[in-house]
Simulated scan of single mutants.
Amino acid sequence: MKKQKKNTAEFSSETIAVNSRYIAISDRSRSTVLLSDFNGNVKYIIAGFGTIASLLFVNEDLYISDIKEERVIRISDRFSKKSTITDGINRPFNMAFKDGILYIATADNKIFSFNTQNRKTELFAVVESKGKILMAFLSDDLYFADTEGRLCHIENEKIVIDTGDLKAGIFGGIAAGQGGCGAYRVFITDMKKGELKVFDPVSKDVRTILQNLKNPRAIAKKECDIYIAEEGTIVHLDLKSFEREELSLNYIENCKIVETEQELL
């Protein structure tokens, strides 16, 4: 079998997402999204954005919020087709998905719900916060952390504060344990202290499970694997063994470039 030529990918990461096949990570310096397999082979480069704020996989489709262009884009059909699903929402910053509804948090701390079936957009909640909102669903509850160190969830249309101050941290990302190891836990990266923390909604305990991270930003979880976007690299943590490794990305020879300015067949 012929080996594919590789070139190391340099990137400045802000956000990350995973599904069963790919890791998606943004490159802030080039306003692109890199799609790699779990061995670090970059298969696709998606270009044509202003400023990428967040990434979210829903099955095989990739949702991208562009805070500069004020739109949310869906990349579908094996990354060959793009569609703008929301336009005009003020600075969409973060996203979560549940039962056909895409939840979009804006930079001014409003949460909108977008029904992917009838395409209706409604105001879901307004959050009083000094920092930007990061969201994740844990079972039926929408949890959100702000970048000032507060973790909350919405219950019966009311905002419940779970932790008022997670030891003066500055959050970079949030992920929920929906299956595999760490089920029914909320994982949070602390950019200020360079740590990965885990919150137990039942006991309300907060523990630090990983330290010495370099400006950790977004986080994504798949079964027993956690992926953390650091500045210029990806940290993989195996929750079974708690082994940590840095994942370098490489461009393969036949890497495909997808321009989102047009729909490709």
Rank of each mutant, 00 (worst) to 15 (best):
residue 113 S to Y: 04
residue 176 A to M: 10
residue 167 K to P: 00
residue 147 T to G: 07
residue 139 S to W: 00
residue 215 N to R: 11
residue 140 D to Q: 12
residue 175 A to F: 12
residue 126 V to S: 07
residue 226 I to H: 01
residue 173 G to V: 09
residue 116 T to Y: 02
residue 144 F to W: 06
residue 188 I to N: 01
residue 120 K to E: 12
residue 142 L to G: 03
residue 205 D to Y: 08
residue 136 A to E: 08
residue 227 Y to F: 15
residue 186 V to Y: 02
residue 161 I to Q: 12
residue 173 G to K: 07
residue 180 G to W: 14
residue 147 T to Y: 06
residue 157 E to N: 14
residue 197 K to A: 05
residue 132 K to Y: 05
residue 211 Q to A: 07
residue 117 Q to E: 09
residue 211 Q to V: 08
residue 167 K to I: 07
residue 115 N to M: 03
residue 242 F to K: 13
residue 159 I to N: 08
residue 133 I to H: 03
residue 128 E to F: 03
residue 218 A to G: 15
residue 166 L to A: 12
residue 108 D to I: 13
residue 235 V to L: 13
residue 219 I to K: 02
residue 119 R to V: 00
residue 239 L to E: 04
residue 236 H to G: 02
residue 205 D to P: 00
residue 164 G to H: 14
residue 156 N to V: 10
residue 244 R to I: 03
residue 210 L to F: 03
residue 131 G to K: 07
residue 226 I to W: 02
residue 113 S to E: 14
residue 149 G to E: 10
residue 232 G to L: 09
residue 231 E to Y: 05
residue 108 D to V: 11
residue 222 K to L: 14
residue 121 T to F: 00
residue 239 L to C: 08
residue 168 A to S: 14
residue 182 G to E: 00
residue 147 T to R: 14
residue 240 K to S: 11
residue 149 G to A: 12
residue 144 F to C: 04
residue 180 G to Q: 13
residue 157 E to P: 00
residue 196 L to W: 01
residue 146 D to V: 12
residue 139 S to F: 00
residue 222 K to Q: 11
residue 128 E to N: 13
residue 234 I to G: 01
residue 193 K to Y: 10
residue 181 C to Q: 09
residue 192 K to M: 09
residue 217 R to S: 10
residue 208 T to R: 05
residue 147 T to P: 07
residue 189 T to Q: 04
residue 139 S to A: 09
residue 154 I to D: 04
residue 130 K to N: 06
residue 135 M to Y: 04
residue 159 I to F: 06
residue 110 K to A: 10
residue 207 R to E: 09
residue 241 S to T: 15
residue 130 K to F: 01
residue 150 R to Q: 13
